[in-house]
Design a binder for these strands. Sequence first.
DNA 1: GTTTTGGTATAACGACCGTTACACTAGGGG
DNA 2: CCCCTAGTGTAACGGTCGTTATACCAAAAC
Lengths: 205, 205
Amino acid sequence: MSGPPHTRERILDAAEALFFHDGIAVTGVDRVAASAGVAIVTLYKHFGTKDNLLREVLARRLEAWTRHWDEAVDRAGSPEERLLAVFDAVETFRAATGPTQWCCFLATASERPAPADDRTDPVFELIRQDTRLVTERLTRLASEARCADPDAVASMLLLLYNGVLAGLLRGSPANPVARARDIARLVITPSAPHRRRSPSRSHGG
Amino acid sequence: MSGPPHTRERILDAAEALFFHDGIAVTGVDRVAASAGVAIVTLYKHFGTKDNLLREVLARRLEAWTRHWDEAVDRAGSPEERLLAVFDAVETFRAATGPTQWCCFLATASERPAPADDRTDPVFELIRQDTRLVTERLTRLASEARCADPDAVASMLLLLYNGVLAGLLRGSPANPVARARDIARLVITPSAPHRRRSPSRSHGG
DNA sequence: GTTTTGGTATAACGACCGTTACACTAGGGG
DNA sequence: CCCCTAGTGTAACGGTCGTTATACCAAAAC
């Protein structure tokens, strides 16, 4: 415990902070190493490749987010509050971790070419894994909250979740988490105040 | 007007497509020029700098989006539909323009360092301009739709707007526009739920 | 006391990037 | 005619990037 205080973790911390505050492509490996107080060679001994470093950063981040969200759910009282806990978790997770601009996974997706190697690229697989995780958990929590249509509620909450994250990047609206909670309460009402029964407008495809 | 078929526009088209499909930093100027069928020197004669090219791409995009949104609003019938038209405009605007991953302004913000030169950087100014434009228009449309609190409605719709855009990047939920419309209808309930009169069209359509 | 482990410093490589200089061509208008 | 405009091709510049090779060092392990 006393020797090198987790060199690997320090590199991951520095990479996470720089990648998602300044941008991945614009951040050189040398800057990551310097920020971690580590030689470039050490970084390559540990991760071998910048892309692999990014991969491990995202994997660690996904696990941390999962754990953090779980704790927020456990702290909540009612099933409804457990469903809404995702929004508070976003806020506290950002406060607990570094100053990232917004969602690391969406930032990675936005910066990356979206080519044909979608299936084989492990980074894109991480992003899909994040989406899958959020969707499944929201569906489960909506089901436990006795929502009429858990899948529909989950997809609406996922849209609000996306809106909160993009709102953090845009800097607007102010306090997107509180706004999302307000809207979410309208959405998850078990007995929906149906204004009209027509499900939705026609859409292509 | 008749000689070279709008060389400048072709460069802007190519830059917009490549920047926001593959990423800005990862797209070299040579690839933009090649995609436009233009020599690199010509590109630099027109724009002088990659950053300046990005600036003009964003400026043009902002103007096109404004016009497109306006037309969608004009096509809508009721004041409520005029307020909701923003979501349909997103979909048709994407269909009309190139295959961008998602919002060009947010993609630029995500990829860029968010440093201290925030006030002087014209690119960040474009991004803020986009946010200002969307916010003000939503507020005005909410006011015209006789919403009780137009500012609150506008900020909620901005969150949904952000959610749609990020949803396009994430690829989930499916059909975020339809989802956002469903949620928006719950949000924009006017002071009284009376929809007594069918809207009068000010012009033929 | 040598080997192993984990880290460091320096330097270089090939590739690509944004940018510019130079010399050239084709067309249009005075 | 000459000049101006708009665009082309080639080639290079300085810089940065991701990555690797080489040699070195300290402490722990056997």
